[in-house]
Design a binder for these strands. Structure first.
Lengths: 143, 143
DNA sequence: TTAGTTTCCGCAAATTACTGCAATAAGGGT
DNA sequence: ACCCTTATTGCAGTAATTTGCGGAAACTAA
């Protein structure tokens, strides 16, 4: 939700422990307007906490994703993360040629999502859906 | 099966060479009705061709994907592949809890796709789009 | 505060996927 | 059938992410 403090309460109330490493990761992702790669989170986290391990970064990011605190964006063959903001939800379209990212209103997927739930009982995880394809520039470049 | 012969001609006509390794991979994927993991393709390929390297399997599968001969399905943190059959196109819904896969008619995504093209000039790669989420059973299990 | 319980971290190793390069072999021309 | 060009392979190494494990740290309750 709105961020950061509520995420801490959320973690605690679900039995998860508040550790300096987790606070660091949360601060770093929350301090970004856009998405950030796991390796970059690691580099920034090490500035405050030199001995953090990359595995901890990955585990923390996956935890925060599971809790809906951050969302995941697949760019090329790397994972990026950003703070999940209920007031500014969006999806990502990533060009497989140039890795350019465009954002998209979830409205475009609303009807699709409802149909999957009603007709198949399947609840898609749209918040973490990255749509791959080709942007107009790269499509022209081939032609 | 059907896509198989034409795939060979397609490769040749585009300047790609027909090698025993590529034929093996093609046979294996075509011999499956459903999707198959890269590691499993490798194991089966080694039966016919003991010295084939896993890197070759990956390169071949990526090539066949680029040519539209096979499609990729992301299951858990592994890639699976299946023969692209124009007469039976479908997408996949994968449960993030139990990795169960359901298929879906691409009709469900047609309108969405057209809107992306018309409004953003973005051409989504629907053939290789895997939709993550939770199946009804796993959703109940949590509640 | 301290003791006790359980989660979490750092480390190392495993997994999965990809890439650079020298050696090899496929396909075309002779 | 042979040679030549160039795509492709196998090998080895790299990158990204995940997992197992023992010790360390966070919460809980006295």
């Amino acid at each position: 939700m709105a961020g950061h403090e509520s995420a801490v309460t959320r973690l605690r109330s679900q039995g998860y422990r508040i550790t300096p490493q987790r606070l660091s990761v949360l601060d770093i992702v929350a301090g970004r307007t856009g998405h950030i790669g796991a390796d970059e989170v690691w580099n920034l986290a090490k500035e405050q906490h030199p001995y953090v391990d990359l595995a901890t970064i990955y585990r923390t990011l996956q935890l925060l994703k599971r809790l809906g605190v951050v969302t995941e964006v697949v760019i090329g063959n790397k994972l990026h993360f950003e703070l999940a903001d209920q007031h500014n939800r969006h999806n990502h379209m990533v060009c497989s040629e140039c890795d350019t990212v465009q954002t998209l209103s979830p409205d475009y997927l609303a009807e699709f999502s409802h149909r999957l739930e009603h007709e198949f009982g399947f609840t898609p995880d749209l918040d973490n859906l990255t749509i791959g394809g080709k942007c107009s520039k790269c499509l022209e470049a081939v032609a």
